[in-house]
Write a protein that binds this DNA or RNA. Structure first.
Lengths: 222, 222
DNA sequence: AACCGTATACTCGTATACGAGAATCCACAT
DNA sequence: ATGTGGATTCTCGTATACGAGTATACGGTT
């Protein structure tokens, strides 16, 4: 939910935001596994700042659902059990289907080519950590013409929250080729301006991911 | 997006959260109009605490989208133009329709009666400020059996973000009776377990609200 | 009189400091 | 050996303090 609404105005980049960005990336690429405690002192020292910006960053990440904070007990990378993952995927399916449906008729040739380019990048990318980001860029490119900034913001937030699990899924199984195949199907239907078909492919894509993830072994709560 | 996920565990209530709650309420009921600057010093003095908890509270409210913060320039109650309001209502329609569809089959008699009771409370409530809260309680009661906590959290967040505009709408026009009529239709269809009809009524309800709001005169950005 | 530059005041972001609560560990008793 | 009680340590929440950036107001200049 970062930058909902007035995302246009240029704001000075505060230390807290930089810390938040680094942490978000580290969590997404798996460097910080679910459940990892996030001690304010440690982070402050590691980043070379005081605890205050770190606090702000943690609170922001909490709002994004990536970190959970218990007063007097500290913060840790949010853990998700199978139920929560299922919930996120259900919401993603809802949000992204709608965004895609709205976007397809308005997609420019440039956007479509851009999305296709990202797919090639994914094929060429050996680093699994980068994959999650590229995946998000591809999806958002297809939704970008939906004409609803808030909807896009919600989708991005849910990608951030779920990407690290998708990443696990991709690295452990040989799911990537199947995913890429679905991606290309998706792009093709978009090129044909067939919104209904595109939505069907997307639903299958997300459903497959969810099913594979559930099967791969759900992470449990402490 | 407050309390997404682990909303079950009991957490100590920190000062920052109390401040956030008071501010959220004040913004929702219109005491703090859109665009009102929120000075950290003022708030800290008014609440009798230091600026730190106030900062935390503001950041949380920013994440919820009802306050916007510009570093070095301060915070103010988020302004929404007609476009943003339209976006919020579109998202609400999407989220709430799905939640209602999922919830209707699982609604207990108790929940339905509870919702009906809230409608009577609304009829009896002279204070317009309270109306927004009751409205939210009614809607959430109907969605509560949807089985997706995250979805419910999103819906609540969007209510919080939009309620103050709905409130304006209700106080200025004589929209309340129409709204209540639609509410009762909604409850009736839910009692009959007719999810499709319920969703239709809900879509009309939200569409009407949106249309009336757009007509009533959109608020402009500074 | 209008405009521009400088100085002042204001507000925020960050750092440091202190006190409270929880968790842990050790000693002692059972 | 195990369980309980207390003290210590760790971490967080809040308060206070300082420095930087921005807006504003005033005075000088054209």
């Amino acid at each position: 939910m970062r930058g909902l609404g007035e995302g246009l105005v240029q704001k000075p980049l505060t230390v807290a935001e930089q810390v938040a960005n680094v942490l978000r990336e580290s969590i997404a690429d798996g460097s910080l596994a679910a459940g990892t405690p996030l001690r304010q002192d440690d982070l402050a020292e590691r980043f070379g700042f005081s605890r205050m910006p770190v606090r702000d960053a943690l609170r922001q990440l909490e709002a994004e659902g990536i970190v959970s904070i218990h007063p007097t007990k500290g913060a840790h990378v949010a853990r998700m059990d199978a139920t929560e993952i299922r919930e996120i995927f259900a919401v993603r399916e809802l949000l992204e289907s709608e965004a895609l449906r709205l976007s397809v008729p308005n997609l420019t040739r440039e956007k479509l080519d851009e999305a296709g380019h990202v797919l090639n990048q994914i094929d060429a990318e050996p680093n699994v950590g980068r994959w999650g980001t590229l995946n998000r860029i591809f999806h958002l490119a297809l939704y970008s013409a939906c004409g609803n900034a808030r909807l896009l913001g919600l989708i991005e937030a849910h990608h951030n929250a779920a990407d690290r699990y998708v990443r696990i899924l991709l690295s452990s199984l040989n799911y990537r080729s199947q995913s890429q195949e679905e991606h290309r199907d998706l792009l093709t239907t978009c090129r044909h301006r067939d919104a209904a078909a595109a939505v069907r492919v997307l639903r299958k894509h997300l459903g497959d991911g969810m099913a594979t993830l559930a099967q791969a072994g759900p992470t449990r709560k402490p």
